[in-house]
Simulated assay, not measured.
Amino acid sequence: MAQTAVRFGILGCANIARQLSRAIMLSPNTALCAVASRSIEKARKFAADNGLPSTVKIYGDYGAVLDDPNIDAVYIPLPTTLHAKWAVAAAEKKKHMLLEKPVALDVAELDLILKACESNGVQFMDGTMWVHHPRTERMREALRDERSFGQLKMIHSVLAYNAGPDFLKNDIRVKPDLDALGALGDIGWYCIRSILWAVDYDLPKAVVAMHKPVYNDAGVILSTGASLSWEDGKVATFYCSFLSYMTFDLTVLGTKGALRVDDLISPFQERYGSFSLVSESDFAQLEQGRWAPAPREHRVGSEVPQEVLMVNEFAKSVGKIKGEGLKPDREWANISRKTQLVMDAVKASMEKGFEAVELVEYI
């Protein structure tokens, strides 16, 4: 039996909502039915600028979307400081929820959101798109190949972009009352998620923030990093910044091989993503090239953009709840919580003078 389309409403007209409105319309199992902003004029402009169908309802109040009985799920791209309020409200109205990252200011706030989702039987997923790309599963397979990759030893993730003076002065991601986590929340979230992904979401034992983070005058983080360590000897480092050249790199090193990707969160092409893998290589004679064997590029196709795959995956879970009476898939909530725990530990280490913070997963 074909799944009935999951009917979406969007709370907020942030720039990322342009990408997700398109994804919702492209996904075969979703329909965009409503868009809301704090002013109906802004919502109307968003609809016009993005060519939304005339059937999409326009609201000048977020609560109106939650009160609409014809909405099954909501996408929430609001500033992080508003997540707890509107995510809990959405759950209480039985709206399934795709929540933009970072999902909360801290794990205590996230737990309030997840408790509301659990109590009301609604599906939760955060907006980390790259994990849904087919490339990600192919990279996972490469890391699990003990013959060519060996035992995982080290991970390094760098996500940065030189945001420019206007961004650094006016964007919500540098405002303490809107997105107080700054670069740590906006792109550090991706760094942490990529590290946890590489270790099958095994939480580290300890986290140490790097010295000399950069803050703006309002105390919002513009640039920072950290190291993570596990009891079995694995280590990881990351760096995130609004002040450095655009870089979306991930490197994973094993005892026999290394995997590298340089467009992790946003593939250069919508239709495919690439990564390089080198295994048991060594220095070669000059006439044979510098490396033998040379790194191999693996190109993984995707019929649709990764954000469409994310929306489609979310909608499948919602469809199983609506159509088959199944319970929500809690794995996505668990992954979000682990990411938030590590982010909290990085911030705690910064506040404690860059001391090591032992990470405990709270029950």
Score class of each variant (00 low, 15 high):
residue 329 D to Q: 09
residue 88 V to T: 05
residue 41 E to A: 15
residue 63 G to I: 03
residue 251 T to Y: 05
residue 360 V to N: 10
residue 77 P to V: 00
residue 16 I to Q: 13
residue 269 Q to I: 08
residue 305 P to H: 01
residue 33 C to T: 10
residue 282 D to A: 14
residue 130 W to E: 06
residue 274 S to R: 10
residue 166 D to E: 13
residue 143 L to I: 04
residue 171 D to I: 01
residue 280 E to M: 14
residue 355 E to T: 14
residue 37 S to D: 12
residue 343 M to H: 00
residue 56 V to F: 10
residue 55 T to C: 05
residue 44 R to P: 04
residue 238 F to V: 04
residue 267 P to V: 03
residue 24 I to C: 07
residue 247 T to H: 09
residue 310 M to P: 00
residue 342 V to G: 07
residue 46 F to T: 04
residue 38 R to I: 03
residue 74 V to Q: 07
residue 69 P to M: 06
residue 187 I to K: 00
residue 62 Y to A: 08
residue 184 L to M: 10
residue 31 A to F: 07
residue 171 D to H: 12
residue 328 P to D: 06
residue 84 A to H: 08
residue 142 A to Q: 01
residue 89 A to D: 09
residue 215 Y to A: 03
residue 318 V to R: 10
residue 280 E to V: 11
residue 61 D to W: 03
residue 330 R to E: 15
residue 283 F to R: 07
residue 338 K to F: 08
residue 218 A to T: 06
residue 200 D to K: 14
residue 161 Y to L: 02
residue 281 S to R: 06
residue 239 Y to R: 13
residue 316 K to R: 11
residue 293 P to A: 09
residue 91 A to D: 05
residue 328 P to T: 04
residue 137 E to L: 07
residue 145 D to K: 02
residue 301 G to I: 04
residue 69 P to R: 02
residue 151 Q to E: 11
residue 14 A to G: 15
residue 45 K to W: 15
residue 172 I to F: 08
residue 147 R to L: 14
residue 233 G to P: 01
residue 6 V to E: 09
residue 63 G to D: 03
residue 307 E to P: 03
residue 96 H to R: 02
residue 98 L to E: 05
residue 55 T to I: 00
residue 11 L to S: 03
residue 345 A to R: 05
residue 219 G to P: 00
residue 67 D to F: 13
residue 89 A to N: 15
residue 86 W to P: 09
residue 103 V to W: 02
residue 260 R to V: 14
residue 288 Q to C: 13
residue 141 E to A: 13
residue 2 A to G: 10
residue 8 F to V: 11
residue 215 Y to M: 10
residue 1 M to L: 07
residue 334 N to A: 12
residue 170 N to Q: 00
residue 177 D to C: 05
residue 347 K to S: 13
residue 178 L to V: 11
residue 36 A to K: 00
residue 84 A to Y: 08
residue 350 M to G: 15
residue 229 S to D: 13
residue 117 C to P: 00
residue 225 G to K: 02
residue 51 G to S: 11
residue 322 K to P: 02
residue 225 G to I: 01
residue 7 R to Y: 06
residue 59 Y to G: 11
residue 258 A to P: 02
residue 294 A to D: 08
residue 28 P to F: 09
residue 160 A to L: 09
residue 145 D to A: 02
residue 225 G to T: 05
residue 220 V to H: 12
residue 321 I to F: 07
residue 97 M to P: 08
residue 75 Y to R: 01
residue 213 P to S: 04
residue 260 R to F: 10
residue 47 A to L: 00
residue 186 D to R: 15
residue 156 H to P: 05
residue 165 P to H: 00
residue 55 T to P: 08
residue 333 A to F: 06
residue 323 G to P: 04
residue 198 A to S: 07
residue 144 R to K: 07
residue 168 L to I: 06
residue 331 E to K: 13
residue 349 S to K: 03
residue 95 K to I: 02
residue 299 R to Q: 06
residue 268 F to N: 12
residue 171 D to P: 01
residue 48 A to L: 12
residue 317 S to P: 00
residue 334 N to R: 14
residue 170 N to R: 07
residue 148 S to V: 11
residue 344 D to G: 06
residue 188 G to A: 05
residue 283 F to T: 11
residue 111 D to W: 04
residue 30 T to I: 01
residue 240 C to W: 03
residue 190 Y to I: 15
residue 59 Y to K: 09
residue 30 T to G: 04
residue 338 K to R: 12
residue 217 D to R: 10
residue 48 A to I: 00
residue 29 N to F: 09
residue 199 V to K: 10
residue 47 A to D: 03
